[in-house]
Amino acid sequence: MREMPLISVEGVSKRFRFPRTASDILTGRPPAAVHALNNVDLEVYRGETLGIVGESGCGKSTLARCLVRLLEPDEGLVRFDGKDISLLRPGERRAFNRRVQMIFQDPYSSLNPRMSVRQVLSEALSVHAMRPKADIPTRITELLGLVRLPADAADRYPHEFSGGQRQRIGIARALAVEPDVLVADELVSALDVSVQAQVINLLLDLQERLKLTVVFVAHDLRLVRHISHRVAVMYLGKVVEISPTEALFAAPRHPYSKALLDAAPELDPSRRTRVAAARGELPNPLDLPAGCLFNTRCPFAFERCFAERPALSARGPAHFAACHLPDFGNPAPETIAAQ
């Protein structure tokens, strides 16, 4: 029996509708919509890092925004500490906002260009009454030290910082309100490799010291593998596999996870392959395939995959995959799946 999850996502779907066109009205069709999330189930436990990985259009950023309530799901719900976050009263909602913080991808648009670092941090500290007014300057110095920026950074404006330094400011802003959960959406993907490593190190260090729960959303498998305890693989708005990191990387149990792993270039030149890991491209998200969403690209697809959408089912300890082939990728198949 596991502990109660800190965050649980239950059957969440999210659609982005296009404006109704004249032909929609004439034919009586519902307006076209991108299905960004399709019935996502997920749990985040206290103190862990959950990596959410997938390619563009898989819905990972939409999911991150639903977690911090920047977006409302169309169906399903997100619970934080057992409570449905869409039903929070104003006071509770503010507390929720304080406890679950998001850090954004773009170091250039995520900071208000007209506010100095001091203004950004003292606003967060004073609105949430984190410190008495007199203690705010000291706390700002502390926060800057925490993200390893010099104290004289406080009176500067965002344009005076490099991309990596801006991400540190974004982290300091989130940490100012002493959250329980950090949701990091592509935290380092806009940064150079050497700077990425600095920010990842910082995140690992802060998580240990402040006992944070982290949801790390990224497209880079190596990074996700490096920092996550558990990993969820998303494809077209659905979690197709979720598992402890090592189990997933050792033996992915969903054909898409395997393709994604194989496609990521190895850092070892001697392990070069010449066969492309996945064929084809993403289907049109306006018009999703019936059955399994991966069936247009899956080399193992059979009739059932075109008729029925597989649900997540157990593959091992805390390991789930949504595939009609229960023995796919099984390192020790006891029996050949009887069809």
């Binding site: 050497s194 490593a197 593998r225 850092l267």
Partner: peptide
């Protein structure tokens, strides 16, 4: 060496990466 060390490697999960301080 720093560039190679900045890329996470298998078997060293959740350890500090060998980063290069500062920016170009």
């Amino acid at each position: 060496r720093g560039l190679l060390g900045s890329v996470p490697r298998i078997g060293a999960e959740r350890s500090m990466l060998l980063s290069i301080e500062g920016a170009p």
